[in-house]
Simulated scan of single mutants.
Amino acid sequence: MGLFKKNPFGHILFIKKWIIRVFGVISHGRYQRFNDLKIEGSEIIRDLPESNVLFVSNHQTYFADVAAMLHVFNASLKGRIDSLKNVGYIWNPKLNIYYIAASETMKSGLLPKIFAYTGSISIQRTWRSAGKDVNRQVKMSDITNIGTALNDGWVITFPQGTTTPFKPIRRGTAHIIKTYKPIVIPIVIDGFRRSFDKKGLMIKKRGVLQSFVIKKPIEIDYENDSMDEIVKQIEHSIEQHKSFLKVVSEKEYQKSEEELNKQRTFWRD
């Protein structure tokens, strides 16, 4: 790799590699030491093609979710089986991994601007801006940039566009799928909201059992499935359909918390 070789977005790969290395080492303990990330399905990552793969996931924090994905993907590609042991896997990271993020989030400070260099495809949200509801047209340049990223590698998206659970899937994700016909891999995460602050930068609680489940590709008929059918498939695959929403009694909630705490004893051992 030439020292000044760039990706399609003009990012120098040598700089990108070092940013991922540094932040990878710094963030590793968030999933391996302070908290315990349980991974399922890493073998699916190893069987994927080099490009035109779209990961769809539920969303719990601004940055910790993506950081975990970069760790899991690179560890899986280096032969780790559902594990992040030995952070050496981050030394030569896969550099054509991108993630879709709101431009206002990635411009909100120096740290987000640095994070953006690791692979952000910054888009203008059509429904929300500066904490207020808006109604804007989709920028075609945003769609084109996502297509460019898919052509070059893997793209991560959070199709609800918010960290609030059980919000509707944005139809823009279905439009991307219909247009570019990527392999669509669902991911379901949990525990991040309990362990990190909303931005995912600060550790809020230690000893939390986090989960990261990679599922098999969604079976999509790109020509005949409607946008609504694709949206419904995504909702179910990332477990954000209303049918997954269960109202429990206080007694049931306390019991489930006790069970979780038993699993968190690794921190006290």
Rank of each mutant, 00 (worst) to 15 (best):
S122M: 15
G29A: 05
Q240N: 09
P182H: 03
T162I: 03
W91P: 02
G29M: 03
Q210G: 03
G172W: 00
I81T: 14
F14M: 13
F115H: 03
R268E: 15
K205T: 11
I81D: 12
A64S: 14
D197R: 06
F115I: 15
R170D: 06
G88R: 12
P49E: 11
E235Q: 13
T157N: 06
R128W: 11
K178V: 07
I45V: 15
G207Y: 01
E235C: 03
N52D: 14
K215L: 07
R125K: 13
I97C: 02
F9S: 09
T157W: 00
A101Q: 01
N7T: 07
P8S: 09
K167V: 01
E219S: 10
L201I: 12
V66N: 01
P159H: 11
I218T: 06
S27N: 05
L54M: 13
D133S: 13
R170V: 02
I146D: 03
I183G: 05
H71P: 06
G147Y: 15
H236A: 10
K38R: 13
V208T: 07
I121H: 00
W18Y: 14
I169D: 00
V22W: 14
R136C: 00
L260Y: 02
V53N: 05
L110E: 13
H241D: 15
A174E: 04
L37P: 01
F34D: 04
S120T: 08
V25C: 00
V208Q: 06
I143N: 00
E219R: 10
M227Y: 08
D225N: 06
I39W: 05
S256Y: 04
N7H: 01
K198Q: 14
G10N: 10
I169C: 01
F34Q: 08
G29V: 11
E235Y: 02
F212P: 00
H241N: 11
S195T: 04
F212E: 04
N74C: 10
S108A: 12
I100P: 00
I143G: 09
G79E: 08
E258P: 05
D65M: 07
V155Q: 01
Y31S: 09
E258R: 13
I100W: 03
K17M: 08
V56F: 00
K132W: 05
V66G: 06
N261T: 12
D142N: 04
F63L: 14
G200Y: 02
D269R: 10
K5S: 15
V72P: 04
L260T: 01
V66M: 01
D47Q: 13
F196W: 06
R128L: 13
L77H: 02
F73H: 03
D133A: 14
K198N: 15
V155F: 11
V247D: 10
F196I: 02
L77P: 06
S27V: 07
V188N: 05
G172K: 04
I187N: 02
